[in-house]
Nucleic acid binder design. Structure first.
Ligand code: FES
Ligand code: FES
Lengths: 149, 149
DNA sequence: TAATTTAAAGACATTAAACTCTTAAATAGA
DNA sequence: TCTATTTAAGAGTTTAATGTCTTTAAATTA
């Protein structure tokens, strides 16, 4: 898969929060149930996004997480970088160490173009924008489509 | 990573054979040493390509593997399908089961375009063509660049 | 202060990918 | 026929990703 499971779960959760778009904290329990993601696993992932500054968390009753100001401006690219790191956008298609025009592998020229088109696609869209669209068009965010924006 | 390690190793080996472009069988021992790939692991991968008809193998002294006729016409896409399967070209970017315009996820429209551009990139080039270019321009095929076409 | 709710942190378990080893089967050549 | 060479097949191991559980810390409510 292009993105790791952690990354996909993080994205779904971020889109959930972006769709709510209230300033409220939403608990991980609520989100894990709505989105059909393991509670503890989701916790791990969102901790990472919180420490990365894309989300803010609050402990105690009525606590939870919400998008930070930074998170509200974030693109899908920012999310992928935060969770999976930059590898997808920097690594050689043949897995060779270092990827550059200095000592390219046979796939280099083709791959850097394709890689850039993936990156552009992810940079193009903010969480908020895609969540608004999802809400308007009733796109699905879970396996069963049972989640309603 | 976009492609699995198995897939990358398979590609490197296929490019090795495509570059030789003699009708000869090349032993797995030779290839694993030239390409810095674990002998036994490479064996597994090439067995798969052989049973898929992209390569032919021959046992005994002076045996080994070579590209089949099908393999000589094969593109990078054919190789990826043979080793990693079609998932990359069919699956939902958010990991949801089934991916189609029937019940799209919020990334669907963006993703199918990007996915197609990956697929086109891989379909565009045959092993032979890319190996010829690699040979002509002395591109590297191993970590240290020690392999010489 | 005490009880409850929630995230944080980290240990632990499971699974799938990556890698290794051993034995069997086919072929060639002495 | 015997031995060496090579792929085939399959079992076994290691490692990294994924998923679960327990304990701790912070905040709220009573
Ligand atoms: S060196 Fe291989 S893709 Fe750049
Ligand atoms: S449904 Fe998600 S990418 Fe097609």
């Amino acid at each position: 898969m292009l993105l790791s499971k952690s990354c996909v779960y993080g994205l779904r959760a971020a889109l959930y929060l972006a769709a709510k778009n209230d300033g409220e904290y939403h608990s991980l329990r609520e989100m894990s149930e709505e989105l059909n993601i393991s509670f503890h696993f989701l916790t791990k992932i969102l901790q990472q996004l919180t420490s990365d500054g894309l989300m803010e968390s609050y402990k105690g009753p009525n606590g939870g997480v919400k998008l930070s100001e930074k998170g509200k401006k974030a693109t899908l690219f920012d999310m992928v970088i935060a969770i999976d790191g930059p590898g997808l956008f920097t690594q050689c298609a043949l897995g060779l160490p270092g990827c550059g025009s200095q000592e390219p592998c046979p796939l280099h020229e083709s791959w850097i173009d394709t890689r850039a088109s993936i990156e552009n696609m992810l940079r193009r869209t903010t969480l908020i924008k895609i969540a608004e669209e999802g809400k308007a068009k009733h796109f699905r965010l879970t396996a069963e489509g049972k989640f309603s924006w």
